[in-house]
Simulated scan of single mutants.
Amino acid sequence: MDQMGQDPAFERFLRATVGEDVNGINVSVISMLARLEVDPWTEASDLAAMPDGPARKRLNTLMTRFKDVPTQGRDQGKIISTLLDLLPRKKVAASPNTPDVVARLPALAKGVPFYWYILAFLILGWVINLAKVQ
Rank of each mutant, 00 (worst) to 15 (best):
D2T: 12
D2A: 05
Q3P: 06
M4Q: 13
G5D: 03
D7S: 13
P8T: 05
P8V: 12
P8N: 01
A9I: 01
F10V: 01
F10A: 05
F10W: 12
E11D: 09
F13K: 00
F13Q: 02
L14G: 00
L14F: 00
R15P: 01
R15W: 08
R15D: 14
A16E: 14
T17V: 13
V18W: 07
V18Y: 07
E20A: 05
V22F: 05
N23D: 15
N23W: 09
G24D: 11
G24L: 04
G24K: 02
I25A: 11
I25M: 13
I25S: 10
N26P: 09
V27S: 04
S28T: 15
V29Q: 10
S31A: 09
S31G: 08
M32G: 06
L33M: 00
L33F: 06
A34G: 14
E37M: 05
E37H: 00
V38E: 01
D39A: 07
D39Q: 14
P40V: 08
W41P: 03
W41E: 06
T42C: 05
T42R: 13
S45D: 13
L47Q: 08
L47N: 03
A48H: 02
A49E: 15
M50T: 02
M50R: 13
P51G: 09
D52C: 04
G53S: 02
P54N: 01
P54R: 14
P54A: 11
P54Y: 00
A55Y: 01
K57A: 09
R58M: 04
R58P: 00
T61C: 08
T61K: 12
R65W: 11
R65G: 03
F66Q: 13
F66H: 04
K67T: 15
K67R: 14
K67W: 11
K67H: 13
D68G: 02
P70C: 02
P70K: 13
T71S: 12
T71M: 07
R74N: 09
R74Y: 12
K78F: 04
I80T: 10
T82S: 10
T82N: 11
L83P: 07
L84C: 07
D85W: 09
L86C: 10
L87Y: 06
L87P: 08
L87S: 04
P88I: 05
R89P: 00
R89N: 00
K90L: 09
K91V: 09
S95G: 05
P96Q: 11
T98Y: 07
P99I: 12
P99L: 08
D100F: 05
D100L: 08
V101Y: 14
V101C: 02
A103L: 01
R104V: 03
L105Y: 04
P106D: 00
A107C: 02
A107Q: 13
L108D: 15
A109T: 06
A109R: 13
K110C: 08
K110G: 03
G111L: 08
G111Y: 11
V112E: 10
P113S: 01
P113W: 03
P113M: 00
P113K: 06
F114Y: 15
W116S: 04
W116T: 09
W116L: 12
A120Q: 08
F121E: 06
L122M: 12
I123W: 07
L124F: 09
L124D: 11
W126R: 03
W126M: 11
W126L: 09
V127S: 01
I128P: 03
I128A: 11
L130E: 15
A131W: 13
V133K: 14
V133R: 15
